Structure formats: structure tokens, C-alpha cells
Amino acid sequence: MVSDKLLNPGQVGRELAPMFGKAVGSWTITRWVVEGVALRDGGRLKLKAIRLPAGYRISMADVESFIAELTRDRTGERPALDAKGRAARADAELEQSGW
């Protein structure tokens, strides 16, 4: 992250303008950092950011990762899980099948 340029929420919103057709408001970006967005499984996905005295700073790599994860959630693709999540999913599938 050291080599990636850190932007404030307003700058991130302007960088996203070509993707959304217009600039995304800085408060929307801040809301993604603080509150996140609701996922279909009931969880929340938050945009990674660094909190400095002058406000949040966000890398575009983190924004791209956030949008990719949100897209996977909205399109129905199963998100990549860590070992604990895979084990929980396997346990649930076994229990559902009667094991």
C-alpha cells in the first residue's frame, strides 16, 4: 500500500466518475468506509481505508477490491472463503444432506 497513492473520499469519487457516469459523493465513499454496504448473506462489506487526522485516505486498489467483492455478491457468485469459512460451509451442507 505504500507505493499506491492514497486519495481522500472526494478524490476517490471523482476517480469513479467514468464507471458510474458521474462523480460519486464523498459522503457515499465515507459511508462505504464507516458503515459498509449490506451483503445478501446479512453481513456487511466495508471499504478499507486509513484514518488520518485530516480524514480518511483510500487506495484505488482497495476501491477496486471493494467493487469486485460487491459485484460477486450481487451476481450470485460465491465469494472466496478462508479455511474457517469453507469448513463452516461444508458443515452446513453435510447437515442439510442429513449427515
Results as ranks from 00 to 15, higher is better:
Ile29Tyr: 07
Pro79Phe: 02
Glu69Arg: 15
Gly98Asp: 13
Arg57Leu: 08
Ala83Ser: 04
Arg57Glu: 10
Phe66Arg: 01
Gln11Phe: 04
Asn8Val: 12
Asp62Ala: 11
Gly98His: 13
Phe20Trp: 14
Ala17Lys: 09
Val33Thr: 09
Leu70Asp: 12
Thr75Arg: 12
Asp4Gln: 09
Arg40Gln: 15
Ile29His: 05
Gly76Tyr: 07
Ile67His: 04
Arg89Lys: 11
Lys5Leu: 04
Pro9Asn: 09
Lys46His: 15
Asp41Arg: 02
Lys46Ala: 08
Val34Pro: 03
Arg40Phe: 12
Val12Pro: 10
Glu95Asp: 13
Leu6Val: 05
Ala54Gln: 11
Val37Tyr: 04
Arg57Gln: 15
Ser97Cys: 07
Thr30Asn: 13
Phe66Cys: 03
Leu47Tyr: 01
Gly25Thr: 07
Arg44Asn: 13
Asp73Tyr: 04
Leu47His: 00
Leu39Cys: 14
Gly21His: 03
Ala23Arg: 14
Ile67Gln: 11
Glu77Trp: 14
Gly25Trp: 14
Arg74Ile: 02
Val2Arg: 06
Leu52Phe: 05
Pro53Tyr: 09
Leu45Ala: 03
Leu39Pro: 15
Gly25Phe: 10
Ala92Gly: 01
Met1Phe: 05
Gly13Arg: 00
Leu6Asn: 02
Pro53Trp: 09
Lys46Ser: 10
Trp99Gln: 05
Thr30Ser: 14
Trp27Val: 04
Phe66Gln: 00
Leu47Val: 00
Gly25His: 14
Thr30Ala: 15
Ala49Gly: 07
Arg86Gly: 13
Arg57His: 13
Val2Pro: 02
Val24Asp: 13
Met1Trp: 06
Pro18Ala: 02
Gly21Asn: 00
Trp32Glu: 02
Ala68Gln: 13
Arg78Phe: 09
Gly85Met: 06
Val34Ser: 11
Ile50Lys: 07
Ala87Met: 04
Ile50Glu: 07
Ala23Gln: 09
Phe20Ser: 08
Ser97Asn: 08
Ser26His: 06
Asp91Phe: 04
Ala23Val: 11
Leu39Met: 15
Leu94Tyr: 10
Gly21Trp: 07
Val12Cys: 01
Gly85His: 08
Ala90Asp: 14
Arg44Met: 14
Ala80Ile: 10
Ser65Gln: 09
Gly42Ser: 13
Ala80Asn: 08
Ala80Gln: 10
Leu16Ser: 00
Glu35Ala: 07
Leu81Glu: 12
Ser97Trp: 12
Glu64Pro: 00
Arg86Pro: 11
Gly43Met: 05
Val2Gln: 02
Ile58Pro: 10
Glu95Phe: 04
Pro9Trp: 14
Ala68Pro: 01
Lys22Gly: 13
Met19Glu: 15
Leu6Tyr: 03
Pro79Gln: 01
Gly43Pro: 12
Leu94Ile: 06
Gln96Arg: 04
Lys48Pro: 00
Asp73Glu: 15
Thr28Cys: 14
Ala68Thr: 06
Thr30His: 09
Asp62Ser: 07
Glu93Asp: 12
Gly13Ser: 01
Gly36Val: 06
Arg72His: 13
Gly10Leu: 08
Ala49Ser: 15
Arg57Lys: 15
Arg78Cys: 01
Gly76Lys: 06
Ala80His: 11
Leu7Val: 02
Glu69Thr: 07
Arg57Ala: 12
Ala68Tyr: 10
Leu7Lys: 03
Gly43Trp: 09
Met19Phe: 08
Arg89Glu: 15
Ala38Thr: 09
Ala87Trp: 01
Ala61Trp: 10
Pro79Ser: 02
Glu35Cys: 03
